[in-house]
Design a protein around this nucleic acid. Structure first.
Length: 458
RNA sequence: GCCCCCAUCAUCUAGCGGCCUAGGAUGCCAGAUUCUCAGUCUGGACACGGGGGUUCGAGUCCCCCUGGGGGUACCA
């Protein structure tokens, strides 16, 4: 990512080739990398990459009161994590005041704009709106129009000297030679205002594409304040990352909301999406986020990794859970990961599920103890299992299986009657991966110690 | 209030007049695999908001209603 100190643009761009695809996102640096910003960035970036065009970052920072320190970095970082980068920028609106004023003054000279005196608010500049109906076409929504008589003369310069949003956007998009404005539906009604500015300036407007809005998992409007964690949904990219989502999951999932490739493909990598993405296939309806499908998809991606690669992704989560990552044998950890790869859907789940591998001491679930160890001859069976395991030459999966089968045969009980007591004894709970793998990987010392301990407390 | 946009299973979607007794995915239910859980596989239930048209024929086109969303600032 490049941050050029002087990011003002050349004003004259008449000679440039306007057929080049150039798109942008224009966030305000007012907070974290919100899911809405990420989605807009994804549409623009994917469209740019599909067309071989350029992706540009512009910062709308004219409202100094709202600017937050570090917000730009967190937005750029969040997008980078998703795989979104920029070819140009960031350009700052705050550095382009001269350019806006030059155009406003010229508009006044031509009597296309005028100074409006308001005794209370001060002088502002308004653009004379055209008469009649303005027609325009949106790539996603189709033909539309607006009765311009409904609009007041648009304020283009506020009394504080700054241009208004709808004016600055037009100047910026033109100067940056933006070919397609791809943004959320909340901006749709700005088109008429911006078209009026394009017309006054005699400039060619870009192509418009307004994608529908993302609704919360509760079906209501997405709110920054609300906590959606019960739905496995978050409002910031950073929170998705912390919850253990993979970036490719988020990209895949978010793109499949509001767009489809046309066939039945569901699990799609970003390259594949770039290849077949078209704005025409973006749907027109608002859509609700479904956390269950998101979790499912993340599980699919988790299962697609080789265990050693998955471990690399898991390491930060293991460290964040308070473990000293260095104290574990790396190869052994890979095996633990392999054991759990099928049963986790979020990276953050690993430590909780595999805690009896990571912790020295385990906690026993009373319920599991009662159900599997304090019933029938479970205690006797476990004690016998312990005895047989103590004399095992090789403490490996095959040997352990043999022991369990022998014990089961001797007592004439099902395999579960032997496996479950053992499982509870070594893990503390009635649920774990396969019992031989679990016990073998745990190691002889740990397993035997835990069995003895269990026999003591039941 | 006014303006604009939208409308297929619970959810995300396919469908661009006959291929639709509406397809896929998640979730849900059942079965298989099995030492528990998960995973995987197989099967099942679940939708064209309502009413008028147009047409030989409408989920697909038109109108109305209803519902949802967005916008109506000297915010962005």
């Amino acid at each position: 990512m490049i941050f050029s100190p002087d990011s003002r643009l050349p004003y004259n761009n008449k000679d440039d080739n306007m057929t080049e695809v150039r798109v942008r996102i224009a966030p305000s640096p007012t907070g974290i990398c919100h899911i809405g910003v990420a989605r807009a960035a994804m549409y623009n970036w994917i469209f740019a990459r599909h067309c071989g065009g350029k992706m540009i970052l512009r910062i709308e920072d004219t409202d100094a009161k709202r600017n937050i320190e570090g917000a730009l970095e967190s937005i750029v970082d969040g997008l980078a994590w998703l795989g979104i980068d920029f070819d140009e920028g960031p350009y700052y609106q705050s550095q382009r005041l001269d350019r806006y004023n030059e155009i406003i003054d010229d508009l006044i000279k031509q009597d296309k704009a005028y100074i409006d005196n308001d005794p209370e608010k001060g002088d502002c500049v308004r653009l004379r709106m055209p008469e009649g109906r303005m027609e325009y076409t949106d790539i996603i929504l189709g033909d539309s129009g607006w009765d311009m008589g409904l609009l007041d003369d648009l304020v283009i310069r506020k009394s504080d000297g700054w241009p208004t949003y709808n004016f600055a956007v037009v100047i910026d998009d033109h100067d940056m030679r933006i070919s397609h404005v791809i943004r959320g539906l909340e901006h749709f009604s700005n088109v008429s205002k911006q078209m009026a500015v394009y017309r006054a300036l005699g400039w060619e407007p870009p192509q418009w594409a307004h994608f529908p809005l993302l609704m919360g998992p509760d079906g209501k409007k997405l709110s920054k304040r609300r906590d959606y964690s019960q739905f496995h949904i978050y409002s910031s990219i950073e929170d998705f990352r912390k919850a253990g989502y993979l970036p490719q999951t988020l990209v895949n999932f978010l793109m499949l909301i509001g767009w489809s490739p046309g066939d039945d493909s569901e699990i799609m990598g970003i390259d594949e999406i770039v290849k077949c993405f078209t704005l025409e296939r973006v749907v027109k309806t608002n859509s609700q986020m479904n956390g269950e499908k998101l979790v499912w998809m993340n599980g699919k991606y988790i299962r697609s990794y080789k265990p050693e690669d998955l471990l690399e992704l898991l390491l930060p989560f293991i460290a964040a859970a308070g473990y000293d990552v260095e104290k574990f044998d790396r190869k052994w950890l890979v095996e633990v990961v392999a054991l759990y790869q099928d049963s986790i859907s979020l990276l953050a789940e690993f430590c909780e599920k595999a805690k009896y591998f990571l912790d020295d001491e385990i906690e026993y679930s009373e319920k599991a103890l009662n159900k599997h160890l304090r019933k029938g001859d479970a205690r006797e069976i476990l004690a016998e299992t312990l005895e047989a395991m103590e004399v095992l030459e090789n403490f490996d999966e095959e040997s352990i299986e043999r022991v369990l089968r022998e014990v089961a045969a001797k007592h004439e009980v099902g395999f579960g009657k032997v496996a479950q007591p053992l499982r509870v004894a070594v893990t503390g709970d009635a649920v774990s991966p396969g019992i031989y793998e679990t016990v073998a990987l745990m190691g002889r010392a740990r397993a035997l110690k835990r069995i003895k301990n269990a026999l003591n407390i039941i």
